[in-house]
């Protein structure tokens, strides 16, 4: 029974990735470009889900991790000639370091206090970027120089201005994220995290060091989000302070809630749907953020488990 499920689950994820690989041959240009962005945002949301969906910690400041990656990578590429791959790695390291520091402090709180603390830290991160406007150009941001639009790695020449290469890079990162989350969540660590989500006191009494487990989850979550930010800045040649605003923290929450918190593929589905909902509604109304608001209220009122969560509950109990 268990192994049968495992095969099904693996088949599903490989299938999703294969489908994403194949659609690039039939997608019209615009949707091809859009999906590249959406995959990176999905990675961001999957990182978010690691913390919110699996560990039960609702952060309202995740944009700071995305921004750490964005600026770590973007400023390196802009001010140094270390090259794109190294800039990318530095972005990720920034995110990991920031999430470790934030985690050590913020995880002393739980529930509502954790939300507010992360929101405040997110605000501090945003203000810090604007405080150093002389270097970051604040709201206006920086455009990546031509030298940072291509690189050679392992004998391969990668051109970031090429839409096809960008798409497949994003897909590669998505696959990597999926794999990491899959292994963590399906393994023993994942079960402890879910136990923390359901009842932290009991898990603590069972002898688990819940603080370290939560810290690990937060660092993994922040690092994945930072990777998404680093990739986003480098691939689309722009870093700016707006990515650190609370609105982007809320987007990660929204994508996750819509797709289904605590499901591996939920954030991906949520990102795709939300992107198109906004893209289409902005054709008809100037207040497309209204849709975001209505979506949040409707979700929390009627579908608190999101799309995949509801499907799992009703029909496919094996869905991870």
């Amino acid at each position: 029974m268990r192994s049968e499920n495992t095969i099904r689950v693996i088949a599903l994820h490989v299938g999703v990735l294969a489908a994403l690989f194949l659609v690039q041959f039939v997608l019209p240009d615009y949707h091809h470009l859009a999906l590249t962005r959406v995959m990176l945002l999905a990675i961001y949301a999957m990182g978010y889900n690691m913390l919110f969906g699996y560990t039960g910690l609702l952060s309202l400041g995740h944009a700071m991790f995305f921004a750490a990656g964005l600026y770590g990578a973007g400023m390196t590429a802009y001010y140094t000639d270390l090259g794109v791959p190294l800039a990318f790695v530095i972005g990720i390291i920034c995110g990991a370091a920031l999430s470790l520091v934030i985690g050590v402090i913020a995880l002393r709180t739980t529930g509502v206090a954790f939300m507010i603390v992360t929101m405040m830290f997110g605000q501090v991160a945003y203000l810090t970027i604007t405080y150093f406007t002389d270097y970051t150009r604040g709201e206006e941001g920086l455009t990546m120089p031509t030298s940072a639009r291509s690189f050679d790695l392992l004998g391969l020449h990668v051109d970031l201005t090429n839409a096809v290469q960008r798409y497949n890079l994003a897909l590669g990162l998505l696959a990597l994220t999926l794999l990491v989350i899959f292994v963590v969540v399906r393994g023993p660590i994942g079960r402890v995290l879910i136990a923390i989500r359901e009842n932290e006191t009991r898990t603590l009494m069972l002898g688990f060091d819940t603080f370290r487990m939560k810290l690990g989850a937060l660092v993994l979550s922040g690092t994945i989000s930072a990777m998404a930010g680093a990739a986003y800045g480098l691939m689309f040649a722009y870093v700016g302070a707006t990515f650190a605003t609370i609105q982007y923290s809320i987007e990660a929450l929204l994508f996750t809630l819509l797709g289904g918190a605590g499901t591996i593929l939920g954030p991906l589905l949520g990102s795709i749907l939300m992107f198109y909902i906004i893209d289409i509604t902005s054709e008809y109304t100037q207040a497309y953020l209204l849709v975001t608001g209505v979506a949040l209220v409707v979700l929390v009122l009627f579908f608190p488990k999101g799309i995949l969560g509801t499907i799992r509950e009703r029909w496919l109990s094996w869905l991870p």
């Binding site: 309202l60 953020l289 209204l290 608001g293 209505v294 949040l296």
Partner: peptide, 13 residues
């Protein structure tokens, strides 16, 4: 909290 975030956007927009 999630619902009031939604309300924030609804009222503002």
């Amino acid at each position: 909290i999630v619902a009031t975030i939604g309300m924030l956007y609804i009222i503002q927009q």
